[in-house]
Amino acid sequence: MMNRDNAAWVNDLKDVGPNREAALDDLDAELKPALRRGISRWLSTSHPEFDDLVKDVGQETLMRVLKQLDTFEGKGQFTNWVYKIAVRLALNELRRRKWRNVSLDYLQENSEEGGASFQFPAADPLPETNMQRRQAMAELQRAINEELTSRQRAVMLAVIIQGVPMEEVARKLGSNRNAVYKMLHDARRRLKTRLEEAGLSPSELLAMFE
């Protein structure tokens, strides 16, 4: 395998002919083991779908790399830029597979659950020493119900509590990840302000957990 710097990768991949073929082969040889390592964090290597996923994501990554070659700015290593493209493809595919059969109807506008109020799971009484935390929990619960729109509340429920990827929330809403992120950012800002106004600074509360 040839050792290439960023410029050599780009030049060879832009070439028409044997240089490009050789570069694609070399890139594939670099990408595959790395991709196996990356995906094995989420899917066991003995899973029946593991090898196919590595293969499909690997192929799709190389296609995207060729298409997006002009967008590579060369600020990091070329192969790391390629890995990044592969990571996004692999994780989005794994997210889609994991959540495709899970109903997230409450995300839809006008759904009953979306409009319902939020409650922390019922808990047994906390010790007296946690008075401030209990007060904060009650205030946060009120803030979630009073400060957030039903859509914000539903998205927060999905992402933070149920652990649904934002990418999947966006898919169900016919939106995109940036928009879902912005919705959550707005929600977090509102809740933070509300707690601070009540004299409950999240940073100070956090210190009590540590």
Binding site: F120, P121, A122, A123, D124, L126, R133, A136, M137, L140, I160, I161, H185, R188, R189, L191, K192, L195, P202, S203, L205, L206, F209
Partner: peptide, 19 residues
């Protein structure tokens, strides 16, 4: 359930403190 409850609240506080 008490542990889950604590960690969910803790998680939200962490996110708000980081906001």
């Amino acid at each position: 359930s008490s542990k889950r409850h604590e960690s969910l609240f803790g998680k939200m506080i962490y996110m708000l403190a980081s906001t």
